[in-house]
């Protein structure tokens, strides 16, 4: 098959690169000997190909692969991923939720309101204010109470009074008790 002008011109990039099969290369060269127009176009393509591209420098070539890798990793990390959500974040969230539930149920069972975040007991230790207690008050707190004081407290707390015992005494018994108390007062007991 005889090659026409257009076919020959089409092959110039490959011809210049040396990529043509030997037979076709010979055909091109035979055609070029007789065709001034095609020789002119080949010269032009040669000029075109010889226009250099400025070198951006070694630093650019050496750093580009690393920069591309870094940029791709960064973009991948910042993007929403269902896979990461399902396999990394959801199990953590589920573990936290289970722990929270266990603490809540334990606190409820043991009646430990300080561990229960949903129940705010105003009388828990943490909410009491000790700021008005001075050093003088410490013995009052630490010293053991006397029998009477204990009695008073128990009377207050348990709605029980020793005066109730007087009510059950007869007038004679009350009279003798009165005399005994008067005697003790005179003696200074």
């Amino acid at each position: 098959m005889k090659l026409g002008h257009d076919d020959i011109k089409e092959m110039f990039p490959e011809y210049l690169k040396g990529d043509l099969p030997e037979k076709i290369k010979n055909d091109v060269e035979v055609h070029l000997k007789d065709c001034q127009d095609c020789r002119g176009e080949l010269s032009f393509i040669t000029e075109l190909v010889n226009i250099d591209v400025p070198d951006p420098g070694d630093l650019f070539w050496k750093t580009l692969p690393h920069r591309v890798k870094g940029a791709v990793e960064k973009k991948r990390d910042s993007r929403f991923s269902l896979k990461i959500l399902l396999f990394k974040q959801l199990p953590v969230a589920a573990t936290i939720a289970v722990l929270f539930f266990l603490i809540f149920t334990y606190a409820k069972k043991e009646e430990m309101p300080e561990l229960n975040p949903f129940f705010k007991d105003p009388f828990t230790v943490s909410v009491l204010d000790y700021s008005d207690i001075t050093e003088k008050d410490i013995p009052l707190i630490t010293d053991p109470l006397t029998i009477d004081e204990l009695y008073l407290h128990s009377e207050d707390l348990m709605e029980y009074s020793y005066y109730m015992e007087f009510a059950s005494l007869s007038s004679r018994e009350l009279g003798s008790l009165y005399e005994a108390l008067n005697r003790e007062q005179q003696i200074g007991g």
Binding site: V53, W61, V68
Partner: peptide, 19 residues
């Protein structure tokens, strides 16, 4: 493997972009 791919084609892609 990314770095190797970039190294292989970086000159061609740059020349194309410059042109």
């Amino acid at each position: 493997a990314v770095e190797e791919l970039v190294m292989k084609y970086q000159k061609q892609v740059y020349a194309f972009a410059y042109r």
